[in-house]
């Protein structure tokens, strides 16, 4: 464990909590892509199947349970509790455009052709594109509430910090996880234009982020 990975996990946790609290306190999921949240729940489910078979550390196990619980709670709030506030017509991204390539690639490119490894690879590739429905919704509605942009900022920052973690681990312990690194770089690239908008619009404007 290093400071970059710890900071990354904290940012990830903060992002998930920001979103969950926003939905719970505003009792509404307007402007939130339910599809992205479903994809994140799938990412955690397929990645943490080794929750009961592999023990890394108390921290690792606890964080896996927390991420699973919070992501399912978010999906529950969107599709059950506050479903009448869910505007599905804006959440129109075709998930098959993401799932088909990701499933295909995880069968082609993996470390071992075993169910657990293929599912782990699937979760890595899926995570890199899981935010697309949310970013697509923002471009479609042309705006995002500032809380939603803070959520996206921390979510993008978490994987950027993981890249620093991989650089650190490569130089200190020769660790190099090619699948995770390539996918993590792609994932972070998707956030770059959002980061630019976030800094120029939200942090200065202190209001809604309206796309040009």
């Amino acid at each position: 464990m290093n400071i970059f990975r710890l900071a990354g996990d904290v940012c990830h946790l903060v992002a998930i909590i920001i979103l969950l609290l926003k939905i719970w306190r505003s009792r509404s999921c307007a402007g939130i892509s339910g599809k992205s949240q479903v994809l994140f729940a799938i990412v955690f489910t397929t990645r943490y199947l080794d929750l009961f078979t592999v023990f890394i550390s108390p921290y690792n196990t606890i964080m896996k349970v927390v991420f699973l619980a919070l992501s399912y709670a978010t999906v529950y709030l969107i599709y059950m509790r506050f479903r009448n506030t869910f505007n599905s017509e804006n959440d129109s991204f075709r998930l098959e455009f993401l799932l088909v390539p990701v499933i295909g690639l995880s069968f082609l490119e993996n470390y071992a052709f075993t169910p657990l490894e293929i599912l782990w690879t699937f979760s890595i590739f899926l995570e890199s594109v899981a935010i697309m429905p949310q970013l697509f919704m923002i471009t479609k509605t042309g705006e995002a509430e500032s809380i939603t942009t803070h959520y996206l900022f921390f979510l993008g920052l978490y994987r950027a910090l993981y890249i620093a973690n991989w650089v650190w681990r490569y130089h200190t312990e020769g660790f190099f996880d090619q699948i995770a690194v390539v996918s993590g770089v792609v994932q972070t690239i998707f956030y770059i234009d959002f980061f630019y908008l976030y800094v120029t619009k939200v942090l200065r404007g202190r209001g809604k982020m309206t796309l040009p």
């Binding site: 990975r5 996990d9 990830h12 990645r47 080794d50 592999v54 890394i56 690792n60 964080m63 896996k64 991420f67 470390y111 071992a112 075993t114 490894e117 782990w120 993981y162 973690n165 996880d177 995770a180």
Partner: peptide, 10 residues
């Protein structure tokens, strides 16, 4: 390839 390495990252 590092086969069957336990994935120690979240």
């Amino acid at each position: 390839h590092a086969l069957n390495m336990a994935h120690d990252e979240l």
